[in-house]
Amino acid sequence: MSKKIRVGWDDLKPGDLMSRTDWHSMIKVEGDGVGVSATWKLGVEKEPVSVFLVVYEEDFAYATRPAPKKKPRPSIVEPILPGEYWARIRFGSQTGWGRIIKRYAPRSDNWLFGHDDKAPYQTSWCGTLAGLHPWMTWEELLEVNKQTPILELLSAEEYYTRKAKGEL
């Protein structure tokens, strides 16, 4: 069963189901303004009858329409290029911005990173008790962020441009 929302007099649109205080059923809105054409059955086994009704605001009780479908949240796609990225993340009921660094993947024999070469991401909000920000894979980053989901991901250029324009 689809969810419905209530609609006020000033927001009536064709397709809405309208009710008046003295009606026993909902009537489908077909036109704009006070003229409302409606179709309903006269009795259980009768054929539908189409009539033209005039409904005035003082007689109007309410109307309903199907609730708008929620837009799916855009999926966050793993960055292709190394560099700085900014993620809008949710902390409880608040949102904020955190930095993600994707490093150039070093060769596996690099003494600085060693075996960690398959973990190119570091975030500004995923620290350990020692305050260190561990390097992780994209999958680990998303797993860690189940408590602080990423809502939007911007390149550094997009982030700083929008920030300079006052859009963030």
Rank of each mutant, 00 (worst) to 15 (best):
M1C: 07
M1Q: 11
S2E: 15
S2H: 13
K3M: 12
K4L: 14
R6L: 14
G8I: 00
G8F: 00
W9E: 11
L12Q: 02
L12M: 12
L12G: 02
K13C: 12
K13E: 15
K13N: 10
P14C: 12
M18P: 02
M18V: 15
S19T: 07
D22Y: 06
D22I: 06
H24K: 11
S25N: 08
M26E: 13
K28R: 13
E30D: 14
E30K: 06
E30L: 12
G31L: 14
D32Y: 07
G33I: 07
G33Y: 07
V34E: 15
V36S: 05
S37D: 12
S37V: 11
T39V: 15
W40I: 14
K41L: 09
K41W: 00
K41M: 09
K41C: 09
K41D: 12
G43L: 07
K46C: 13
E47H: 04
P48G: 10
S50Q: 11
S50P: 00
V51R: 05
F52M: 05
L53G: 02
V54R: 15
V54Q: 15
V54F: 11
V55G: 01
E57M: 06
A61P: 04
T64G: 01
R65I: 10
P66A: 13
A67E: 15
P72I: 02
R73K: 11
P74G: 08
P74A: 04
P74D: 05
P74I: 02
I76H: 00
E78G: 04
P79D: 10
P79Q: 05
L81D: 15
L81Y: 06
L81I: 05
P82S: 09
P82N: 03
G83I: 05
G83N: 05
E84K: 09
R88T: 07
R88M: 07
I89S: 02
I89V: 15
R90L: 06
F91R: 09
F91T: 11
G92N: 15
G92A: 09
S93A: 12
S93T: 13
T95A: 10
W97E: 03
W97S: 02
G98W: 02
I101D: 13
I101F: 08
I101G: 06
K102M: 14
A105G: 03
A105S: 14
R107Y: 10
D109P: 13
F113R: 05
F113C: 05
F113S: 04
F113K: 03
G114K: 11
G114L: 11
K118D: 15
A119R: 11
P120Q: 02
Y121T: 05
Y121W: 06
T128G: 06
T128K: 02
L129A: 11
L129R: 08
A130H: 04
A130E: 13
G131Q: 05
T137F: 01
T137E: 03
E139L: 06
E140K: 03
E140N: 06
E140I: 01
L141F: 07
L142K: 07
E143A: 14
N145L: 01
K146A: 10
T148V: 06
T148G: 02
L151R: 01
L153G: 06
L153T: 02
L154C: 10
L154D: 03
E158P: 04
T161W: 01
A164K: 09
K165P: 01
G166L: 04
